[in-house]
Every structure is written in structure tokens, then in C-alpha cells.
Simulated scan of single mutants.
Amino acid sequence: MDSALQTFEKRQKALRRKHERMARGYVNKLDRNGLITQRPDSKLGGILFKLVMLVVLAIVVSKILLLAALGQEAYLTHLTNLQAGGTAEQAGAWLMQIDPVTAKVAEGVALILN
């Protein structure tokens, strides 16, 4: 009897969590059997993807602006100083290294800035 009560409470807890998620939004889906079911809408995935893309865009734009403002020689000296530092500085140097796309775009931005 105790195991039956535990499984019932487990199912009830799962159902309560599902209803709490559905209160924030749900989507109607068509099953294989032709039955329309309602499932919680997963809006977090879209928000997380947008946040990651925004961070990547910010890093790329900062690389381009720094490279255009400092020039390639000064930028490379800053990178070598970072590579001589600790683990966090080395990770930053790896992240901020010059790639071909950044170099080409920075050339165009440098022409606009000068």
C-alpha cells in the first residue's frame, strides 16, 4: 500500500508541475493517433538562444572596433601580453584572436573611422 501511495504522489507531483508550466503558455500538438494534446510551450529555449547570439555578436563587434581603432600591430601586442598572463587572460587572448572575417570588416570600419 505504501508503494502505491508513493507512485500516486509522484504522478500527482508531475501533473502539478506540468500544469504550472502550462499556465505560462501551451501549444496544441497533433499526436500520431490524431489526438490533439496540449503541451507546455518552451519559451526558454528561444530566450537562451537569443542571449547566446547576443553575447557572440557583442564579442565580434568589440573585436572589430578594437582592431579598427588600435591597428593590427598594437592589437597584436595586446594579444601577446594577454597570452603571457594566467588562464583567464589566455582564454581571452584565444577569444580575441584575429580571424579573417574580423580583419576584413575591421579594415572597412577603419576606413570609415579615419
Rank of each mutant, 00 (worst) to 15 (best):
W94Y: 11
Y75G: 02
L67W: 01
L5R: 09
H19R: 14
A14R: 05
L113A: 00
Y26N: 13
R24T: 14
Q97T: 01
I36H: 02
P100G: 14
Q97H: 04
H19Q: 13
Q12R: 09
G45R: 12
L35P: 04
I47V: 08
E107W: 04
F49K: 03
D31L: 15
A69E: 09
A4V: 11
K104L: 11
A14H: 03
A91L: 12
G108E: 13
T87F: 13
R16Q: 13
L51M: 10
A69N: 04
A110M: 14
G34H: 08
W94F: 10
V27D: 12
I59D: 14
F8Y: 00
L54M: 01
I47A: 00
Q97S: 08
L48I: 05
K50Y: 00
L111M: 07
I98W: 00
G45Q: 14
L35S: 11
F8E: 12
H78G: 08
L111P: 03
Q90P: 03
T80E: 10
Q38C: 12
L15P: 02
H19I: 14
H19M: 09
L111N: 00
V60C: 04
L111Y: 07
S3V: 02
S3K: 15
Q83H: 04
I59H: 11
R32V: 02
E20W: 10
A69M: 00
Y75F: 02
I112T: 08
L82G: 06
Q90W: 01
L67T: 02
G92Y: 14
K29C: 05
V55Y: 09
L5A: 10
